[in-house]
């Protein structure tokens, strides 16, 4: 019985599940934004937050623990050097999930999971350009589709 056991099995064996989450968390920390199914995204939160906490700890032991889970030293370096300082003052909640709706083909509910506060980081690096970039990006986006009229006044 799975009474009071947390976590989803996702129709996989333990080893399959573990391998999948190692791949997913590596991709998420690398790309900062990935699209997957809703259930996987919700489980991935747990793993990703744990990894970022390891990054914030910053000790050699934490680094080895991260290396034993995340695939590739490049992403681990990014976690410790780039992501850890970004989330220094944030007590958890490093990820955001946005539901995207059903997937074509198998109707699986998809979601986008991303690391939060990426915009702030960009703003810090290039403060004067930010406002301009955003409106032009929004204009380009609404220009592509005919059905996006009300956007620009809001921002």
């Amino acid at each position: 019985m799975r009474h009071r056991k947390i976590g989803r099995r996702l129709s996989r064996t333990w080893s399959h599940r573990k391998a999948m989450f190692r791949n997913l968390v590596t991709s998420l920390l690398d790309r900062e934004q990935i699209i997957t199914t809703e259930a996987k995204a919700k489980e991935l939160r747990r793993v990703a937050e744990r990894m970022i906490t390891l990054g914030k700890r910053g000790t050699p032991h934490a680094r080895r623990q991260a290396l034993s889970y995340i695939r590739g030293t490049r992403v681990v370096s990014k976690l410790f050097e780039e992501l850890a300082p970004r989330y220094r003052d944030r007590p958890g909640g490093y990820t955001r999930i946005i539901k995207l709706g059903p997937r074509r083909g198998d109707n699986a509910p998809e979601a986008m999971i991303e690391l939060v506060a990426r915009e702030k980081e960009k703003a810090k690096k290039a403060p004067p350009e930010k406002a301009k970039k955003k409106t032009s990006a929004a204009a380009a986006a609404s220009g592509k589709k005919a059905k996006a009229p009300a956007k620009k006044q809001k921002k």
């Binding site: 699209i35 946005i98 995207l100 709706g101 986008m112 059905k147 921002k155």
Partner: peptide, 18 residues
Amino acid sequence: HRMCPHCGYYKGRAIKEV
């Protein structure tokens, strides 16, 4: 509580190109 599948917007920002 979902991204709009018609325009790709959610909470005032573009999430995905449609």
